[in-house]
Amino acid sequence: MPDVRSHDARETSVNINNLFVTGFAEGSYVEWEKDEDNFNAKVSALGEVSVAITNNNTGTITLTLSQTSPSLPALKRLAASRAMFPIWVKTPSETVGGTKAMFVKSPSGGLSDEIEDRELEIRVFDYTDK
């Protein structure tokens, strides 16, 4: 019998500066990525390979919230303060984030006859993905 696996969004938590974020939008609500590759490789004309280890440990976490998210006002204030903060995204099998992060900029927005999304981009300066 094949293994059956599932994902339950209720088992994911996002904690920013001791605030548990709620009010995510539909679809991809949390995304993360290390900003640079772990190494750069060069190959000579003779096929010799040289590898330079990249020591850039920054990453980016993007949250997509609903415009009605109860967390949005506090996050916008934190973004406006330009303060550094911890951020942790936790699932049953992964922990992503760091202790030193800042908002890249305040979220852009728009209004329509439907509930709109607000995208928040966060740069993590001591990014870890376990």
Rank of each mutant, 00 (worst) to 15 (best):
F85M: 04
D8C: 02
E119P: 01
L46S: 11
A80N: 14
L63C: 06
I115C: 01
V14D: 01
R77M: 15
R123F: 04
E48V: 11
K76N: 15
I87S: 01
S66L: 12
R118E: 02
T95K: 11
T58W: 05
I53W: 04
N56L: 07
A80V: 13
S81P: 15
D37G: 10
P86H: 06
P2Q: 07
L46H: 13
G110T: 13
L72K: 08
I87P: 01
S13F: 01
S66F: 11
W88K: 06
N15E: 01
T99M: 08
F125G: 02
R118I: 04
V104L: 09
E114K: 08
S81H: 15
V51Y: 07
F125S: 04
G97E: 03
N38P: 11
I16E: 00
E11F: 00
R82E: 15
S44H: 09
I61C: 02
T95S: 06
Q67E: 15
N18Y: 00
V30H: 11
T128R: 07
A9M: 02
T128D: 06
S108W: 02
F103I: 12
G109D: 08
S50F: 10
N40V: 10
F103T: 14
V4Q: 06
V21D: 08
D113V: 09
S112E: 09
L63D: 05
V43R: 13
T95I: 10
P2K: 12
K100S: 10
N57D: 11
A41Y: 09
P107Y: 09
E94P: 00
L72E: 06
D117C: 11
S69N: 15
S6L: 05
W32V: 03
I16K: 01
G97S: 02
M84E: 14
S28Q: 10
N15Y: 01
T12P: 01
N18D: 14
S81D: 14
F39Y: 13
D113Y: 07
E116Y: 05
P107N: 07
F85W: 05
N40L: 10
